[in-house]
């Protein structure tokens, strides 16, 4: 893999982490001393993606303009890696009129038609609309693909299986991705899923399936490239399960008392690991790494400043946008 791609993967991961750390900071800043999930500049549930950066970076580095991605209730990493405007993303999280959905959606309901990005807060239910986007690409005879992402907890939902079947049947240009972060909120994978690898489920639909271990961004990049190339060339869908790590709670405020793997998880933080790898391989030095972190932090702070300076929606407009 050439240096340019490696640095780009690293830069994307750093940008995602910078963003999530900044949201984490601002989310908690004004919810004290008494915890009130609905209080503060960022109200509501907040599902942050720290630890899962390699999934987003590795997949999205293979996408071209016109390709799309469908994410979950934990969508920021994929939105950022896919190139959704940080300002519009931050503004939506802050509930502002300048946000992706003008403050109507919130962080689980992000839509960026320019980059064909969307997400759904309902487990596995982002897959079926992705089929339709793929169907439309095929009808328009564009060489574009959709990557449909969900979590390992979603692989037991009907929508997951219905979507794999229909996409395989109609050879739609979709890549199905399962982000396995070991935890469906508080339920460990072994307590929810009868098989060790969801990639095995691909066989049931006659499509390629692969499980990628160790949250390794370069392995993810390579497997995603194969699957995306396959979809783009008209050969139909693939299923990738990526074993990643959820460093923080299911949502902010989740004390994670149920987790016995937190120390191990922290030891598997992919960011310092990949940075150390690139330095040891001679592709990066500490000064360059610091520069990338500073640039990312500056970009993130600019986006958050934009969000906070943007107007809240006017309550008089609460009934707008129900219909076109």
């Amino acid at each position: 893999m050439d240096q340019k791609i490696k640095i780009e993967l690293y830069r994307t991961m750093v940008l995602i982490r910078s963003f999530e750390e900044a949201i984490l900071r601002d989310y908690h800043a004004d919810k004290k001393p008494a915890w009130d999930i609905g209080a503060g500049l960022i109200p509501g549930e907040m599902h942050l993606s720290a630890g899962q950066e390699p999934v987003a970076a590795g997949i999205c580095a293979n996408l071209s303009p016109g390709d799309g991605i469908t994410a979950t209730h934990r969508p920021h990493h994929l939105a950022i890696a896919h190139g959704v405007s940080l300002k519009a993303l931050a503004a939506e999280i802050f509930g502002r009129e300048t946000g992706l959905g003008k403050g109507r959606g919130g962080h689980m309901h992000l839509f960026d038609p320019a980059s064909h990005f969307s997400c759904s807060g309902i487990i596995a239910e982002g897959y079926p609309p992705a089929l339709g986007q793929a169907f439309a690409f095929k009808w328009k005879k564009t060489p574009n693909v959709i990557v449909a992402v969900t979590g390992e907890g979603a692989a037991n939902q009907g929508a997951f299986h219905e979507s794999l079947n229909l996409a395989a049947l109609w050879k739609l240009p979709v890549v199905f991705v399962v982000e396995d972060n070991d935890w469906a909120i508080s339920v460990p994978r072994h307590a929810s899923t009868a098989i060790a690898s969801n990639a095995e489920r691909a066989a049931a639909y006659g499509i390629p399936g692969e499980r990628i271990e160790d949250n390794n961004v370069e392995a993810i990049w390579r497997s995603a490239k194969t699957a995306i190339d396959r979809a783009r060339s008209g050969e139909g869908p693939s299923l990738l399960e990526i074993h990643t790590v959820r460093l923080w709670g299911h949502f902010e405020g989740d004390a994670q008392a149920y987790r016995d793997d937190l120390d191990a998880a922290r030891a598997h933080d992919p960011l310092p690991a990949y940075e150390a790898q690139l330095i040891s391989e001679g592709f990066l030095d500490s000064a360059q790494a610091e520069a990338i972190k500073e640039e990312s932090a500056a970009e993130v702070e600019a986006a958050l400043s934009f969000a906070k300076a943007s107007p809240l929606p006017d309550a008089a407009d609460a009934l707008r946008y129900v219909f076109a």
Partner: peptide, 18 residues
């Protein structure tokens, strides 16, 4: 379609968004 309303109604929605 297959007897798979979640998949094909969702497909319709996604196609409409495009």
């Amino acid at each position: 379609t297959p007897i798979s309303e979640t998949a094909f109604i969702g497909l319709a929605t996604g196609a409409a968004t495009e």
